[in-house]
């Protein structure tokens, strides 16, 4: 076996278990670039892009999105997260959205992965499976560094799950082009009114997706005063304070796509706008 086309998840988990060289390929939008440029040459590949089990979205109370769900699917079939829809629309191009999967984003674990701040802010759980069994990992524990995560070599990501968080959520991403950009900085904000919880997560602003705990607490305080369920705008001062707290949670660097100073600045702008935007949603 050099390239194996998996029929179902069990077939795939067995295939990666028996061949230590085996790597998984779903949409190919990350791995094929590495292969085309000669940076990676996996000894064996298991293609999981046609595993139907991985392609479902269910919304019975808890949302479960199969790892093989593409961004196009996320745009067409509402997974109950406006932020995830917005993030999906910002992914690459139609061609990339047709092939790229949410599981691929989770597996690659780039700090710039567009879906990842949303999963972090939703406090999603990543479900992985191997011949040894199934394991559930909170997103907060998933990423261990840039393009590093807690997946064992023989594990397959099967789904992401989260509690439906209501309509107050958004995603924003900075790039110097109107489409097809890798995030210079990104932000997801989720206000779960029924659980009185605020989730803020930052992309491309540190080695992993970062959470802004102090900003979350601050926003929760603002919403305690405004009323969680109401559609009322916080004051500009409150939004600005929230922005500053979000920016202070970042650990940005200068790189080819942007400066650390700009990343910090733009995070504060995005965060202030995001809070103003979601507060009036209902």
């Amino acid at each position: 076996m050099a390239v194996h086309v998996a029929r179902d998840v069990d077939d795939a988990t067995r295939a990666v278990a028996v061949d230590e060289r085996a790597e998984l390929i779903a949409g190919g939008t990350d791995l094929m670039v590495e292969i085309n440029f000669g940076r990676r040459r996996p000894g064996a590949l298991v293609a999981i892009d046609r595993v139907q089990e991985l392609r479902g979205i269910s919304r019975s109370g808890r949302v479960r999105v199969g790892a093989g769900v593409t961004y196009t699917q996320l745009l067409a079939d509402d997974a109950g997260s406006a932020a995830l829809r917005e993030a999906s629309r910002s992914v690459g191009s139609p061609q990339i959205r047709n092939a790229g999967t949410i599981g691929g984003n989770i597996a690659t674990s780039s700090p710039a992965g567009d879906a990842l701040p949303v999963l972090a802010a939703l406090e999603a759980t990543i479900v992985v499976r191997s011949v040894r069994g199934e394991r559930r990992v909170p997103f907060a524990e998933w990423m261990t560094g840039p393009k590093r995560n807690g997946r064992a070599r023989d594990e397959i990501i099967v789904a992401a799950e989260w509690e439906s968080a209501g309509p107050k959520q958004t995603f924003m991403k900075v790039g110097t082009r109107n489409a097809m950009v890798i995030a210079v900085a990104s932000l997801a904000l989720v206000v779960d009114a029924s659980r009185r919880r605020v989730g803020v997560a930052l992309g491309s602003c540190g080695p992993t997706i970062l959470r802004a705990d102090r900003a979350q607490s601050f926003a929760a305080g603002v919403l305690d005063e405004l009323g969680w369920e109401r559609q009322a705008a916080p004051t500009e001062t409150a939004c600005a304070e929230f922005g500053a707290l979000v920016a202070s949670a970042a650990r940005p660097i200068d790189d080819v796509r942007g400066t650390a100073a700009y990343r910090s600045h733009v995070l504060s702008v995005m965060a202030a706008r995001a809070l103003a935007r979601v507060a009036v949603l209902g």
Binding site: E86, R89, S90, T170, F171, M172, K173, V174, G175, R177, N178, A179, V181, A183, S186, Q231, M270, R273, A276, R277, V278, V280, L281, G282
Partner: peptide, 24 residues
């Protein structure tokens, strides 16, 4: 903002698909 919804598709605004501004 008009009632929290973009008055124009953000694709036409600076930042485009990044959904950064609805007019702000």
């Amino acid at each position: 903002l008009r009632a929290g919804r973009p008055s124009r598709d953000p694709l036409l605004l600076p930042g485009g698909a990044g959904n950064l501004t609805h007019g702000e």
